[in-house]
Every structure is written in structure tokens, then in C-alpha cells.
Design a protein around this nucleic acid. Structure first.
Lengths: 148, 148
DNA sequence: CTAGTAGTTGCAATAGTTTGCATTAAGCAT
DNA sequence: ATGCTTAATGCAAACTATTGCAACTACTAG
């Protein structure tokens, strides 16, 4: 069973329908991997299924997000990006506001903060969805811009 | 001297020009307060200065952000929001993905995390700009949706 | 006070994203 | 296998945000 098929089973198991469009989209994002934008996935998936509409990508993405299968993150500039969630390797994202680079951050660091926040405020941060914006090591040392 | 004029001095001091448009925008956001969206500010500021273009709001905002005078935050849905930074009361933001409510979070909690992150990864989070998305106490207890 | 420079503005075009609605078809029950 | 129910799709339009460019003007130097 291909990665896409595995995802199809997973989403069906959560009560969503598996359509040809979704099959192609799932196969595509499983194959591409990494931190994708909607337009990227769209152009790749449309090659496999002409006539596919970009709206369907957005809505499928929203569905996968609701199903807890992808994480979304907004880099502060450029299009929103998303990634398949790997249950064995939960992590947050660090997005560099200078170079757009996306780094992974270990879940434990996040979980620790999340715990503190919920204790202090009652507000539940989802460690899976966490994205922190800042400046990466490289850009910082290049001194392109100091943190304001 | 009005709040808007104080802001005008501040931005002039950082090497930016003070134009009539910026004067009106600064006066407007100082008067409105809170967590504003661009369209909100636009409609209020245009009343004071007809002909004002919404692009100017976006660009002024970007300028104020670069000057370190406003913080931006993305709620994950809806338009981007921003707030004047109060130097005496630095804080991050907690945005509820259910009800769009924005809560403040004490800087010390954030600063602690930022320290850990920079030590582990070299990545510098700016405590002033930090926004965390999650589910607030109210929405959680209403059980509208569990964290996915 | 005047002229020059460079930052700023408005407009138009474009990119990215969301929403409403009619149509289609996946999955369930028979 | 057949029909039913309702989720999902495609299309178009609206909306949010960004960018290029020509015209304008705030500020500085003289």
C-alpha cells in the first residue's frame, strides 16, 4: 500500500470521504514531503488529475487539518505552508522571518511551555501546531537585521 | 501633545518621515487601541483623510513594525491584527482559534522559552512578537472542539 | 528660503485565500 | 445492485494582501 493509500485509509477512518481528488492530493503531498504551499501542491497534483481546482486543495487541506493529519504554519510572509504530521516525530516549527527557512523544534521544548501556559492562563496551546517566528542563527550572525 | 503626535515624534526619531497620512493613521490607532485589523483602521482613518489608500495602511504598518512600534499577529484565520507596543508592558499574545479572542501573556513566560530555544537551536525568538495559537479556557470547556 | 534627494503615496495589476451555490458522487442501507 | 443522503467538487465572485511604477513631497543641505 502506497503512502497515499495509507493516508486515504486514515482519513476514511475519521469519517471523511475518499474521492479521486483527495487520493491524488494525498499521494502528491506524501510524495513531495517537506513544508509545502498550496500553489506548489496544486501544480503538482493537477498534472496527475487535470481539471482539479485549487479550491479543492484548500478545502482538502482544511479537512486534513481538522483530521489532525497536517499542521499549518504561517511564516509571516509568503503563502501559508503545511506539512504532514508524523505522529512518531512530533515537532513545532521555527520560521526565520529573514530567510524564510523553516526549522523543526523538538516537541519537548514546546510541551514544557504549553504546560506552563495552560497552568497560568487556562489557554491550551497545541504543541503539534506551534510555530514560532524569529531570526535564525545564520541571519542573526550576518547581521542583516537585529531583532526589533 | 496628543498620543498620535507622540507617536509621530517617535517615528521621526527613528528616521522615518511624518506625512499627513501617517499622522492620521497614528492618531487613529492610538485612539482606537486594542487589537486592530487593517480594514478597521482603514475605514476609521479614511473618515479623517478622504482619499487615503488602504495600501498606505499596510505600508505604514510595516514601517511601524520595522520601527518596533507595533506587533503583528496572525490568528490563523481572519485578517492579520496588530497592536501598538507598550514598552512598559511587553507581552505576547494568545489567540483562540475557536472564538478569535486575543489574550495577553506575560513576557516572562515567553522570555523563558525564548532563552531555552536560542540555547538549543541558535534561533532567536522575539518575545515582543510572539503569538501562540490554541484554544482558550472558555472554548475548551464548551467542548466545541477538542484540540487536534 | 530654495533646490535636490530619497522616502512615501496612490493606482493598478497580481497573487493568495475564502465563500456561495448548483452539481456531482461516495458511502450507507436496503 | 439500486436508491438515498449528504459530503465534496468546480466555478465564479469577493476578499485580503503584496508589488511595480510614476508622481509627489518631507526633510536636509546649502
Amino acid at each position: 500500500m502506497s503512502c497515499g493509500e495509507k493516508l486515504a485509509e486514515e482519513i476514511r477512518g475519521k469519517g471523511f470521504r475518499v474521492t479521486p481528488q483527495r487520493g491524488v492530493i494525498l499521494e502528491t503531498i506524501a510524495h513531495m514531503g517537506g513544508h509545502l504551499s498550496v500553489p506548489e501542491v496544486f501544480s503538482a497534483a493537477r498534472d496527475r488529475l487535470p481539471g482539479l481546482n485549487i479550491t479543492t486543495i484548500y478545502r482538502t487541506l482544511e479537512t486534513l487539518h481538522r483530521a489532525g493529519m497536517v499542521d499549518l504554519f504561517y511564516s509571516g510572509s509568503g503563502p501559508t505552508r503545511f506539512a504532514l504530521r508524523d505522529p512518531d516525530q512530533a515537532h513545532g516549527h521555527l520560521v526565520c522571518s529573514e530567510c524564510e527557512q523553516v526549522m523543526d523544534i523538538d516537541e519537548s521544548l514546546i510541551a514544557h511551555l504549553a504546560e506552563e501556559v495552560v497552568r497560568e492562563t487556562g489557554f491550551s496551546i497545541d504543541p503539534h501546531h506551534l510555530t514560532l517566528v524569529g531570526v535564525c542563527d545564520d541571519c542573526l550572525s550576518e547581521g542583516k537585521r537585529r531583532i526589533s
